[in-house]
């Protein structure tokens, strides 16, 4: 989708649900968060849910999205976005509640919330940005840091003997969520597919089936200290070798 601006520059069309007053956004150049949120914005537009939803974001670089959308939004504490949107949804099931968080927020400090929300099949949509590190705090090891990968707290590379293996979050959610759950893993390297997953994850909530969870493989060139080519190579080769793309759980088609 491209739009011709009067100054003869081609500019991609902004999703209608984006808040243009806060654009350009505040993520680093080359950051994956912007691509994920663009796909989320387009999914919101296509489903026409801008007026019916609440967007919650975590602490981490996701917090930079607190005023990203023309959508009622709440920025919460590190790891606590899952319970905040859960509380809303329980009290007001007619709301469409979306939680957006990083891999640290979802798999470390908020892992008990993610796990139990999945077990309870909370009717919320959780979108998690996996960038293999703690972006906002300056590039420390995250649960998703790949074996051997250098970060600020693993300067000689992640030693799996000492720190374990990277968390496979989508697999964990898929393993514990009851029937009705939707679980997928997409990547910013394939935005079209990612949007499809996010849209299904929202639709699954709208249909009241169960929890919807999409992990998005994403890049953090600032902390990875990679150029554009290296960034994409890391996302497309290294990350996908460990984190498999695709749908892990799809609710069974309802009987007609």
């Amino acid at each position: 989708m491209q739009e011709l601006k009067e100054n003869m520059v081609f500019q991609p069309a902004m999703p209608k649900s984006w808040n243009e007053e806060t654009k350009p956004h505040k993520f680093c150049p080359g950051c994956g968060h912007g691509i994920i949120l663009k796909m989320l914005g387009e999914a919101i537009d296509e489903l026409g849910i801008q007026e019916k939803m609440i967007f919650g974001c975590d602490i981490g670089c996701s917090l930079l999205a607190w005023d990203f959308f023309k959508v009622d939004s709440v920025q919460t504490h590190h790891g606590r976005t899952t319970p905040v949107v859960t509380g809303m949804k329980r009290a007001h099931p007619e709301l469409i509640c979306v939680a957006y968080m990083g891999d640290g927020g979802g798999y470390a400090i908020g892992s008990q919330h993610l796990f139990n929300a999945a077990v309870r099949n909370e009717r919320v949509t959780i979108i998690l940005c996996n960038n293999c590190n703690y972006g906002m705090t300056g590039g420390q090891m995250a649960p998703t840091t790949l074996p051997g990968m250098k970060t600020e707290t693993t300067p000689y590379g992640r030693d799996v003997e000492l720190t374990g293996y990277p968390t496979k979050g989508s697999e964990m959610v898929a393993a514990v969520a009851p029937e009705g759950a939707y679980v997928a893993r997409g990547t910013v390297a394939n935005p079209r597919q990612l949007k499809g997953f996010i849209k299904k994850a929202l639709q699954n909530q709208i249909d009241g089936n169960g929890i919807s969870f999409v992990e998005c493989l994403s890049g953090c060139p600032t902390n990875w200290r990679t150029n554009a080519k290296q960034t994409w190579e890391f996302i497309e080769k290294e990350m996908t070798a460990y984190f498999k793309l695709g749908e892990l759980r799809v609710p069974q088609a309802k009987e007609v």
Partner: peptide, 26 residues
């Protein structure tokens, strides 16, 4: 009325926050 038994008190506090944000007396 409604009740949610959460996974811990951190979650009870934050689901409570979500509940009141959505307009429930919680």
């Amino acid at each position: 009325k409604k009740f949610l038994q959460t996974e811990d008190e951190i979650s009870a506090g934050f689901t409570l926050a979500g509940g009141v944000i959505s307009g429930a007396k919680a």
